[in-house]
Nucleic acid binder design. Structure first.
Lengths: 100, 100
DNA sequence: TCAGGATTTCGATAACGGTCGAATTGTGTG
DNA sequence: CACACAATTCGACCGTTATCGAAATCCTGA
C-alpha cells in the first residue's frame, strides 16, 4: 500500500490544527479515536459516506492529529497525542475533555 | 448605537469556537486582546481592510469569544475569558499559550 | 491469478467564507 | 444642522471545502 504522508508536528501551524478540529464529523472521529485507541476506517460511527470519511481522515492526518498504519488490507488510525501535546500543550487534550 | 448580540456561552458549540479560532487574522486579534485587554476596533494591527476586520470581529463575537461595549463613537473589545474558561476549560487558554 | 472487500481518488456540485470597495449607520462636535 | 470620524453592512468576486457516487487502487485468500 502506498506510503502515506505524515507531517512532522513541528511544521504544522496552529490554525491548521484548529481548522481540522472545527468540524463536527472530524470531532466525532477524534473522540472515537481517543476512546478506542486504534480504529479501522470502516468502524467509525459517522453520518457520512465512506469517501467523505476518507477525506476527513486525510484532513486530520495532514494536520498531524492522527497517524495511519496499514495492517493488511485495513488501515489503523490512532491519535498522535504525545506529539501534539508537546507541540501545542493542552490544546488537543482540553478539546477532548470539552466533549462528551 | 444598535444593541450587539452576545450569545450565552452555554449555547455556543465547540466547533463554532474552534472555527472562529482557526483563522490567522482572528488569532492575531485574540492575541492582541489577551495582551492589551480592551482594544478599540481601529487599533488592531492586522493586515486586512477595516470591513474585513469587522467581519472577523463578528465571527469571534458570535462564537462567544469576545464582548463589544460601545464607548462613545468607539467600540471596546475584550475577551470573555472567564466565561469561555468555564464552558470549555483550558481550550482558549491553551490556544493563547501556544502562540508567541 | 482471480475475486472480493477495504479504502482512496476522481469528477462534479453546491455551499461556505475571506476579501475588498462602496454605501450606510451611528456618535460626537462645531 | 452639517460635518467628520468610527465601525458595520452590502454586494460582488473567487478560492476553498464538504459531500456524494463511480471508478481506481491495494491487499488477502482461494
Amino acid at each position: 500500500m502506498r506510503a502515506l504522508h505524515h507531517p512532522d508536528v513541528s511544521t504544522v501551524a496552529l490554525p491548521s490544527v484548529l481548522n481540522a478540529l472545527a468540524d463536527e464529523v472530524r470531532l466525532m472521529v477524534v473522540r472515537q479515536l481517543a476512546e478506542a485507541g486504534g480504529v479501522v476506517c470502516g468502524q467509525f460511527d459517522v453520518p457520512v459516506s465512506m469517501s467523505t470519511l476518507s477525506h476527513h481522515l486525510k484532513v486530520l492526518r495532514e494536520a498531524g492529529i492522527l497517524r495511519v498504519t496499514p495492517q493488511g488490507s485495513f488501515r489503523r488510525h490512532e491519535l498522535r497525542l504525545p506529539e501534539m501535546e508537546a507541540r501545542f500543550p493542552g490544546v488537543l487534550t482540553s478539546i477532548l475533555q470539552a466533549t462528551p
